[in-house]
Write a protein that binds this DNA or RNA. Structure first.
Length: 483
RNA sequence: GCUCCCAUCGUCUAGUGGUUUAGGACGCUUGGUUCUCAUCCAAGUAACACCGGUUCAAAUCCGGUUGGGAGCGCCA
């Protein structure tokens, strides 16, 4: 009842922070914040071969970027003596033993079992023998292959789940006394750091009975629990899926949080989007919800059971909503960060400030600034883009000449006046006196000559930012193209 | 092959036996504004996998079928 809430995220530094790991971290964090509990970060680096400090850094940076700060930090590689103590205990108690079967033998055994339609598992006869030497073996937990026991546990999201003990086989728990394997290290750490709730992806459901068995052997069993459950409670989250509904992976697109950061997604938007993947607040139809409100509403009980497909369109939409809600100062700061990639943005704070109202509603992500680089440098485009409807090259050229005259005459300081004059020009240019003026004949080539884009903000607005001299220069370039 | 998990529009989801001609959001389509794009506004599109059972009544409960997914390492 009064048990303190303690949860953990336990990534292994064998790759960058994966979106699935980040979502698991997020749900753990939300649960902890909602319950005023403790969020623990544990780096699972027992496999020294595959672990790399650069990945650890990426994971830490990614979690911080998302705003998922941890309260406690552990590294398994720094806790090896603890595992050793428990491995020794199991060995001494006769609950674990050395297995000297070769990988080939194990493979062969599994092959035969599959061929005979049996559950693949290693039933080791070495547990009945006294080991002669300890070279080349590994340590396994002694599991009764004749047991009729069912290993049951309650999952907060899915209800009761059960497995048959005898189908598990003698699980590997350590490479040697000093080197624990995943399932063993998890159980020891969760116990030692008093984790109250294990919240992780549903791909860990099959690991749960193994960990319960290890926990029981270690004496971590909680006798007050009618299900005979070891200490933590479990909640298995639905997976994040790719468009083909299989587990999200590289081939589905960007999977690391770093990539989303670099593409110009805002951490708040990612937070919001990921929170709503596999969870919906009760009694709310809001899709845009800030951190505090999500924390307030968060409850494992309304986490969904089925996997959720990661949908970039929706993320883009949410991100665009967050961009629109940014203050000008915040947006400028974020855009300037991108100037390392787009050199022309360097020291252009004033220009960026001027174009903000134009680009804010057109950006889904910050990297979309690349569509607006024409504000900072000459646009490149094909001559044909200047053409409007069925008009001839010569018509467009003449129009541009007249627009140039207008700009030369009245400048760009009075946009409303310029617009009026451009409208007048359109009226003057119409061939059929009864038809409505075709403003496109004037505005389209003018706009293209300034932006080089088939879609962009209003040419007069662009002209105001560029200034008279630059505008005339660009119109001249366009006219040259047409000649 | 074995074990486990899951099943409402293309996608994210609301819905916990009657208020549902199944609601919202994204996407898409159309219209309005407009030189274009975007924004904004309006409208449209589209789903309870199937078969049984329980019940006066089932998307909602039960069973089965089918389908999808995950796990099956001396990785984590």
């Amino acid at each position: 009842m009064s048990k303190e809430i303690r949860v953990r995220i336990a990534p292994s530094p064998t790759g960058n922070l994966h979106i699935g790991t980040a979502r698991t971290a997020l749900f753990n964090w939300l649960f902890a914040k909602h319950k005023k509990g403790t969020f623990v970060l544990r780096i699972e680096d027992t496999d020294l071969e595959r672990s790399d400090p650069k990945y650890e850094k990426d994971i830490l940076d990614g979690l911080k970027w998302l705003g998922l700060e941890w309260d406690e930090f552990y590294k398994q590689s720094e806790r090896m003596d603890i595992y050793e103590k428990y491995i020794q205990k199991l060995l001494n108690d006769g609950k674990a033993f050395w297995c000297y079967h070769t990988k080939e033998e194990l493979e062969q055994e599994q092959k035969e079992q599959m061929a005979n339609k049996l559950a693949p598992r290693h039933i080791c006869d070495h547990k009945y023998k006294i080991p002669q030497n300890k070279e080349g073996g590994i340590i396994r937990l002694n599991v009764d292959e004749k047991s009729d026991e069912k290993i049951k546990f309650n999952d907060i999201i899915r209800g009761e789940i059960e497995f048959e003990e005898k189908l598990l086989g003698d699980l590997s728990i350590a490479k040697n006394e000093k080197t624990p394997l995943y399932n063993f290290a998890v159980v020891v750490d969760d116990h030692e750091t008093k984790i109250s709730h294990v919240i992780r992806g549903e791909d860990h459901i099959p690991n749960t009975p193994k960990q319960i068995l290890i926990g029981k052997a270690l004496g971590f069993h909680n006798p007050s629990n009618p299900l005979g459950q070891v200490m933590p409670e479990y909640a298995h989250l639905p997976l994040i899926l790719g468009s083909d509904k299989s587990k999200m992976s590289k081939r589905h697109g960007a999977t690391s949080i770093t990539e989303y950061n670099e593409e110009g997604y805002l951490p708040e938007a990612m937070f919001n989007y990921m929170a709503f993947l596999g969870w919906t607040p009760k009694d709310s139809e809001k899709e845009i919800m800030d951190k505090d409100e999500i924390i307030k509403n968060f409850d494992l009980k309304n986490v969904h059971k089925s996997g959720a497909v990661f949908n970039l369109d929706k993320l883009n939409w949410i991100n665009s909503q967050y961009i629109k809600n940014l203050s000008d100062e915040e947006l400028i700061t974020k855009i300037l960060v991108l100037s390392s990639r787009y050199q022309v943005l360097s020291n252009k704070e004033n220009t960026i400030k001027k174009i903000l109202p134009m680009i804010k509603e057109r950006m889904e992500k910050l990297s979309d600034i690349k569509e607006f680089l024409f504000f900072f440098k000459d646009p490149e485009y094909e001559k044909d883009l200047l053409m409007w409807k069925k008009y001839e090259t010569i018509d467009i050229q003449k129009t541009l000449e007249m627009v140039k005259e207008l700009v030369t005459e009245i400048g760009v300081g009075a946009p409303d006046t310029l617009r009026e004059k451009l409208d007048d020009l359109a009226s003057k240019l119409k061939t059929d006196p009864d038809a409505k003026p075709d403003r496109g004949l004037v505005y389209w080539p003018f706009r293209v000559s300034l932006s080089g884009q088939k879609g962009s903000p209003d040419p007069v607005d662009i002209a105001v930012v560029l200034g008279q001299e630059e505008v005339i220069k660009r119109i001249n370039k366009a006219i040259q193209k047409l000649k």
